[in-house]
Design a protein around this nucleic acid. Structure first.
Lengths: 254, 254
DNA sequence: GACAGGCGGTCGACATTGTCGACCGCAGTG
DNA sequence: CACTGCGGTCGACAATGTCGACCGCCTGTC
């Protein structure tokens, strides 16, 4: 039976739809958006609700995502091997560099943040675990595109969305940059996604040298860069953290 | 069609199974655990994998939860109205009390943590958003059981699991405690779940006075208690934060 | 190195199961 | 006070997911 189960695919589409729209959605909205009969959509929503994946506002009758997703998402993190092994290294890196550290893996057409260490001295930061970053304009994303053919495939042919004036929007530009990244072994992104923010990332490999994720540090361009380039000392810190995590993953087997 | 969609319920059961077991599970394990034909389990797993809810270790062929769950769980938090309105109050409370703050809602037979503010001065804490706490032995749980009939129903008749010597394990004990909680308007839990940890919680209501969640502060018993009782000043802080959040929720409408 | 046992995965027949579109009662609205 | 939209239900139909036998592969064993 090499075909997906229809009702499941539809349920997944409904949840993604609910995740996308900022506000709650009504039954009819869901049905028309996915081109389903109202009865069908209702059956799926009822089951999802009963399982806790979707909740219904009793007042308006509209639907939103449910708490069970948060719980399962947490379980995903608990089991995540890369994350588990990287925790302590990420902490060290944040302390050594004095900047925010992110750990990301490829997910669909972006980088999913699976770990986030706050900048040591600073308060008032928002945890970004579970959020996504673009592939073509972040250090994490460019690392993955450079080394993981799947990531390159997900990126597509462009043109890509320009977030700032420095964003690379053409496939040829990104590919050229990736060749450079492969050559020197690390990626940077200076104000390519957010004004004033620069980051430096490096690849994490598993025991069989497959790319499995990336680490990066991220901070204000004034602190991360010097004379228009990222500070070599920070690059060294990130690369050594990436190597340490990779080694740790490889050691799991032997 | 007031019946749940079979394949969806089964898919949910599979995901819960994967979330429960610490390690990855094989196809046959999943099938026998849920009493399904291998072909059926495979069909569901294949669809879940394709949608990103489940991942397969290419080496061992075993299954684990997928990244999409983390993303959707994050989306759940983004839309969560109680959490959004409580963010700033929880911050203030943590600063005023100098202790960790949790915000929880009822989910199945427990309290799901939807927000967590670290103790201001302290480092090295693990974010517990997405994890669950028991109903019968925590301040958050007892608040919900006291005011939300659904929570009381989920709690059941006991006896409940004893985590420490001070845990209330009989329904009668918990019900008596809840009567007291309703009377004075707040709950505490001193070493009932974890040795050395005490917490104080209060109810959050929506605009129609329905219980929708609870806040608590939690910290070492030496700091939270005095002469064997929780400090009145901390109780006052928690209650005023709970009132503030409730007011904020009510104000959304008028 | 041949064998047995277990694994993940596939296949096709069967009937269970999800789907569809018409229909219901209600609430808000002009 | 009709009218339009909503969320939700119903029952007939056949498309759909389910089942158990089967396949090829790997691993451990004697």
């Amino acid at each position: 039976m090499p075909g997906p189960i229809q009702s499941l695919s539809r349920a997944a589409a409904i949840m993604r739809l609910l995740a996308g729209g900022e506000r709650r959605l009504g039954l009819s909205e869901v049905a028309t958006a996915l081109d389903l009969a109202k009865g069908t959509a209702h059956g799926i929503l009822r089951t999802l609700q009963q399982e806790g994946f979707v909740e219904q506002d009793p007042e308006s009758g509209k639907y939103q995502l449910g708490a069970e997703l948060l719980r399962l998402g947490q379980s995903y993190l608990d089991v995540h091997e890369l994350r588990a092994r990287a925790l302590v290294w990420a902490d060290d890196l944040a302390r050594a560099a004095g900047e925010t550290v992110y750990l990301g893996v490829l997910h669909q057409q972006g980088v999913l943040i699976v770990h986030h260490v706050f900048r040591p001295d600073d308060t008032r930061q928002v945890l970004e675990v579970g959020s996504m970053q673009p592939l073509h304009s972040t250090a994490l994303g460019k690392v993955l595109v450079s080394y993981d053919p799947v990531a390159r495939g997900e990126l597509g042919a462009g043109p890509y969305e320009p977030y700032t004036l420095r964003t690379l929007t053409e496939a040829a530009e990104v590919d050229a940059e990736c060749a450079l990244i492969r050559e020197r072994g690390w990626a940077d992104s200076v104000e390519e996604t957010w004004e004033g923010v620069a980051s430096i990332g490096a690849l994490i490999q598993d025991r069989r040298r497959n790319p499995v994720g990336a680490v990066c540090i991220s901070g204000p361009v004034e602190r991360v860069c010097e004379d228009g380039f990222v500070k070599p000392s920070l690059v060294a810190s990130v690369r050594s953290a990436a190597r340490a995590i990779s080694r740790d993953l490889g050691a799991g087997r032997f």
